[in-house]
Design a binder for these strands. Structure first.
Lengths: 233, 233
DNA sequence: ATACATCTTTGCGCCAGCGCAAAGATAGCT
DNA sequence: AGCTATCTTTGCGCTGGCGCAAAGATGTAT
């Protein structure tokens, strides 16, 4: 059992704190505030004044936005090494979305003045941050395009494949997605409804492509899913 | 007749080159390559090796992505003061999308080494760039949410209102969107089809909310459109 | 002027996916 | 063990918006 990684175009090659001398690295870690979140707790909430940005040391966060109709949309799942809420801090605004921990999650937070000071003293940090954010932008733009051009089935397939990359765990029965993931979550993430997602997953289970339990999905035949996701019709 | 601006939450408050001493400003401009694009010409194409990033001095760019099915999706319209393709340059990749000029457009381009050097010497540049990109990320995430939760009519309404902010021109008959904008463009931008967009605009024209000619739209009753865009049902 | 290309409109049929309802499955709590 | 809360599945009807076809409108080149 080991973490999946690499092999595809979406490798996590941008780390916020990469390429830094040990001394600077230590300094940065020191000047931040450590937090340990219990599962399912809120790190910050959409609409609150944004005073800190966070780096995930360990665990996973779910980023969601609430639409005016009160529907929750999942913008992204974040895992270790990723940065969030830089927007808000830099531009002195409200948090544009809500961040909730999935499991026990450790983060480091910096406030605006500290962040700015660090970036002015160590330009590499600003460059790294830029690189991380650009990667994220690219990701959302790709999903925006998919939402415009593909139908639900394909989007769900791609979503599962993406989740494998960040949270896949090899097991004897296939690759298991190592975070609790309900049908509703997938629906909120892909712009669909629970019902449709449930029907789709059921059909894939019948085909033997996946196995699923409550809030847990194991991909048995990833290849079949890849073919399906890339299928043009 | 004057350019619209401000009044709303989406003020363009992040400029790549703001807060810089004149000397540095001049230095930066000097080290870039000026280009003047004729209308409808390609600045860079999706998939090409990315060697430069660009700042728009004057004019408008249309950013599009081609889906695997060959459908064009409009990711964004950019206007003066905005930055593009930083992704590609920083991460040494291909351009993730195509940039095409709408009218005659002036840009300045920097290559990777120049950009990095500038950011290391003048951290404010990296911070500004970060701020610009974060603003863009926020924008796409909002539109992603809209695509997930709203129906075509509302998305089109919001799109027109957004375009007013960056490219609106007050005229006697209302606010005109000052770039050639076809039904197809709006469809590609909102994740809809030409037909649906055409029907929607026709109905609004009957209601007296807008007036339209070929590739040109004038908003007569912006207020009605705002009410409609915010309507929860 | 004429021809060609592109953009726009409208009718009509169709279906992917939603919405609701209701029942079954699974987990946590006392 | 039993109760409650949450998650999942499935049937069924409905519709927003797509897809196609075909005609009209507007702009551009020869």
């Amino acid at each position: 059992m080991d973490k999946m990684n690499s092999t595809t175009t979406e490798i996590k090659e941008n780390e916020f704190l990469k390429n830094l001398p040990q001394k600077q690295y230590d300094d940065i870690i020191q000047s931040g505030i450590q937090k340990i979140l219990k599962p399912k707790s809120i790190l910050f909430r959409q609409g609150e004044a944004a005073n800190r940005c966070y780096l995930i040391k360990k665990g996973h966060l779910k980023l969601t936005k609430l639409s005016e109709q009160g529907k929750e949309v999942i913008i992204r799942y974040l895992s270790d090494g990723e940065l969030t809420a830089a927007v808000a801090v830099l531009n002195n605004k409200e948090y544009p979305l809500t961040a909730e921990s999935i499991e026990t999650t450790e983060v480091i937070g910096w406030d605006k003045s500290t962040l700015i000071r660090m970036m002015k003293n160590m330009p590499d940090i600003a460059i790294n941050a830029l690189s991380v954010v650009l990667e994220r932008l690219d990701n959302v733009q790709n999903r925006y395009m998919e939402l415009c051009t593909q139908r639900v089935e394909q989007r769900v397939a791609r979503t599962l494949l993406r989740l494998i990359k960040t949270s896949g765990l090899k097991t004897s029965g296939g690759i298991c997605i190592d975070i609790p993931l309900s049908r509703q979550n997938i629906a909120d993430y892909t712009g669909a409804t629970v019902f449709t997602v449930s029907r789709i997953l059921s059909s894939w289970e019948k085909l033997g492509w996946i196995k699923s339990e409550r809030e847990k999905i194991t991909i048995v035949d990833a290849h079949a899913l890849v073919i399906f996701a890339d299928k043009i019709e």
